[in-house]
Each structure stands twice: as C-alpha cells, then as structure tokens.
C-alpha cells in the first residue's frame, strides 16, 4: 500500500526522482474503466503522455482484464482479488475491482500517493453520475457530461494535493 511508504524512504525518492528526471509528467496520467466482460467503457488522459489509438485502448483494456483474471488464478493463496498495483520505472498502475466486476484503474507517475483514494472517489462518482443517469445503458461506453466534469475535478484535486508531499 502506497500509504505505508515513508516519503523520505530512499528507494521511494529514487524512483520518483529518476522518473521525473526522465521526463515523466507528475501526477495522474489516465483513467480507464472496464466493464465486467472486459470491454472498455471509459478512457481519459489527464497528462501530456503519448496518445493511444482508440482500437489500441480497447485491446489493452481487454488484455488487462485477462491479466487481472490470470493473477487471481495463479495466486498461491486463496481469496486473491487480483492485481492492485503494477510498478514500472516510468509509471504506476493502480487497479480496483468493484463487487460487480467493473474495474477502475489509473496510471500515474511512479510512487504517486493516494491513488486508491482517487479510485474510490471515481467509483463514488460513477455510481452517482453514471448509474443514476436514466440515459446510460449498462455495459456501454460512458458518455455523461456530469461524470466527465466531476472526474476531471477529482483528478485535479488529487494532483493539487500531491504538491503537499
């Protein structure tokens, strides 16, 4: 859990600093939402990162869906809920799955704090502005103006808070 990380820890600083020096934009990069059958229903980028083509995003989403399911199967212990955090030198990917099988994940600069809280608030916004919208069809791509604006401000809030660390 990234919360347990001491921001003064050497390894933590090294990875965060190295990535920043390599030109990785700070804060949250992108948000993805995958429905329970592995289809991509929402994808937005919030930082200056290379553009991914629409078909490619859908392919990546269903691949993540499969990798997530595999991680549950190959886990050596019972009750594994799948990959929660993927760390690389250039970015962190944090994923959460709801009880109904919808997956939310964000990509962010390495060692970005509090991503699980951001995912939690995105889930809250999803249940408000997507599920309670009579014009949203289940399992279909999300096109809800209020959801877009609220998620954007949640991400901005999160990035602003990161400045405090």
């Amino acid at each position: 859990m990234s919360q347990d990380i001491d921001p003064l820890d050497l390894e933590w600083r090294n990875r965060a600093v190295l990535a920043q020096e390599a030109g990785v934009p700070p804060g949250v990069h992108s948000l993805w939402i995958i429905n329970k059958s592995g289809g991509l229903v929402y994808h937005k980028t919030y930082a200056d990162i290379p553009h991914i083509d629409v078909n490619e995003t859908m392919r990546l989403a269903s691949m993540w869906h499969a990798i997530h399911a595999m991680s549950i199967q190959i886990s050596p212990v019972e009750g594994c809920t799948g990959i929660e955090l993927l760390e690389t030198d250039q970015f962190d990917l944090r994923c959460t799955q709801t009880p109904t099988g919808t997956k939310f994940f964000v990509t962010a600069a390495p060692k970005t704090l509090g991503l699980e809280h951001l995912l939690r608030s995105v889930y809250d916004l999803y249940s408000d502005y997507v599920m309670k919208n009579p014009f949203y069809e289940m399992e279909m791509p999300i096109r809800c103006e209020l959801f877009d604006t609220n998620v954007l401000s949640a991400v901005r809030n999160h990035n602003a808070q990161l400045g405090n660390y």
């Binding site: 408000d128 502005y129 309670k132 919208n133 009579p134 014009f135 096109r143 809800c144 103006e145 209020l146 959801f147």
Partner: peptide
C-alpha cells in the same frame, strides 16, 4: 442532479 441528457435528445 445526476442526469446528463445526451445531445441527441
């Protein structure tokens, strides 16, 4: 409060 009306409506 939670309703976004799509453009086609």
């Amino acid at each position: 409060r939670f309703i976004s009306v799509p453009k086609d409506l």
